[in-house]
Design a protein around this nucleic acid. Structure first.
Lengths: 215, 215, 215, 215
DNA sequence: CATGAATGAGGATTCATTCAT
DNA sequence: TATGAATGAATCCTCATTCAT
């Protein structure tokens, strides 16, 4: 499904300006949530006038939805690329884990926004945008699990849908644990202060956990 | 650690009034987040004057922290009770899953608040309160896993800390999936529209997933 | 003229309690002005319940007026005592100066209140109370000056009323300069940092100034 | 010392608008004091939105300080101009008296504000601004007195600093007596109801008083 | 008569949105 | 089309006053 919450003039500005605006908005919304986010600050940080912001977006909500849509699409792209590379099942899982570790670090704000987004506030509008991605993710996982079952890599007595759900749950919380301050602290508490210095160990343990669960 | 963000007079009012206020506040904060929550509305819903609210709490933030502290303590209590009942490992896990399903339904708002709380906004203050609970949870899980390893129920080649972390991740997202609108929809998308009519199946599948991962 | 801004029950409480209330109120009004003064704080400082305060005084304004009336009467008493002691003119003037120096130090709050009182806020009610004192002061000064003229101590070509006015102006600002923070700093700026260590010099110079003006 | 309590945008608006705001604020603060002054009323009286007020000034306090700074500077200017006109000593004194009479009538609010400012409330902030003016005043008076002593116009046995102080006290209270309601009534009480119809007489008597004191 | 918890109107401040240039 | 000054509704918080005990 295609959504468009920006106005005509937004399509006509340079990619560079678009990115400045999106980036500025993502950060502000990720750090402050929808209500506390300040459009005037977003405009200033993006070096754009408030007036222009209202030429590009009808109101705060539409800017938010544009930003959510953008973020969600970006998250989906990464996943799609990995799955489409047609590796064997556990290589794919491993790639996803590594991608989460890498990506959550470089684009923290996007994951923060995703966490913020799941909050009750305005969730109905947000869901309209995100349902698409969640649906695709659900199907992708279920289908590669099913394929792995057919290939004899994953055991047959488990339900592919439920496994997909639990798998994604592990991934979502891994993402948060690498991006959001609260979950970062929580991870340190579960393992130790230096856990972020050893991504490979985390990846290895999670892979082991998942392998056990599915084989 | 003990925290107290309420003022003296709050201790002196009837339990019933206290509950009215806490409940009203939890709901408002859970649904709107810290910034959009409206103290005047909280007061009205609790049938208390704004003036009184400020007799009980120094300001909005302290009301929020009181509510967070209350919620976090309540969540911890449930878990503690289950673990202290000294069942065998997988009975304990099963009980926890069932408790999450039951509890997340009856006290939706508390879990919503927990989700809302992990957001970047004000996380520093919140962490002071929650770190306690997260630490206890981390240790509890790690120690029952270790015990289960010694008892030969859980395999020896896994790390108890990491397993505890992944286990809790599965539980946290299960909680959210039974309480928060966004995650509820997501769960339906992964399984199907009627997933909430069959708690036992969800529990069974999750238990199977965990058993596989740990044995 | 006699005023009464307190209610019946205030007359019946012990002198000690009355003083506690008046003292607490004078300080609060002197330090914060009418509007910022906080009745609840006044009550607490006086160790009296707010409820009682409203048994004693109809409202904040009446408490203020009671306090103003009390302060003004006390100021008048000091002056009256000195003038009635029937010394010669310049001994009287000297005694007044010394009294101001002494009194303004021990009862700072009363003078602060007097300064605060002359502010536009509520001046009409205040004037009703203070006019009495100001009138008496005006007459007292004018009459002792006139007497001093008749006695040949003060020169004949000056107007007793105007002299009384200028004399009192010097006294009022001396009072403020010994009580109110702003005027204290100002005095230090005119003379030097240690001016308050040498009351006799200040007194001597002022007396010299006045003698010159009137003889 | 230079102070700036207004924000950038305030510098950019028209002189006319600036004056409207300053005038409205001076009046409101002079009449009600800092605490009771109502920013919304100031804005309305100045025909400016509240929002704009907060674009121009960080908060109520800064608006107050801007207004105090403005008033104090204006008062100083008048005095400086007179003293710099290089008349002989008593012509200068006479000019000052006449200026006070004239100026206090046309700009009542400024003097009211000065009186209000000396009150305990917020005096620390205010003093930072006013100390400059008071210091300059103190030095100016002391130096013209000293010069007059050298010129043989003022007698040598008096201290120039103390004389400057007493002189300024007489002037300050004259100012108040021409501007502030309380002090106006007081002046009428000392002289008579019609005292304000005969400025020349007041000036003459005060000059006589001062001449006596200093010669 | 004494108490002090409860009330709620009032005011400072913020920020999404508009509109004249 | 771009700008950013201006707007004013909305909300946190204080405190004079009331009243049940």
């Amino acid at each position: 499904m295609e959504f468009k919450y920006s106005k005509e003039p937004f399509d006509r500005i340079s990619e560079e300006k678009k990115n400045r605006i999106l980036h500025s908005a993502i950060t502000e919304f990720a750090d402050n949530g929808f209500d506390s986010a300040n459009i005037n600050k977003i405009a200033k940080k993006a070096d754009v006038s408030v007036g222009s912001m209202y030429k590009y977006f009808t109101n705060k909500k539409d800017l938010y939805l544009t930003v959510v849509d953008f973020s969600v699409k970006k998250l989906r792209t990464v996943l799609n690329d990995i799955i489409n590379s047609q590796d064997d099942f556990f290589s794919t899982i491993e790639k996803i884990i590594k991608a989460i570790q890498l990506y959550s670090r470089s684009d923290e704000a996007l994951t923060k926004l995703y966490n913020e987004m799941t909050t009750e506030n305005n969730y109905e509008l947000v869901w309209k945008i995100a349902s698409d991605m969640e649906g695709i993710t659900a199907n992708l996982y279920a289908s590669i699990i099913k394929k792995a079952q057919n290939d004899g890599i994953v055991r047959k007595d488990i339900d592919s849908k439920y496994s997909a759900f639990f798998l994604d749950n592990l991934f979502v919380l891994l993402q948060f644990s690498y991006s959001c301050e609260y979950y970062k602290k929580r991870l340190k508490m579960f393992i130790d202060e230096n856990v972020f210095d050893n991504d490979d160990l985390v990846a290895k343990e999670l892979l082991k956990f998942i392998k056990g669960a599915l084989c």
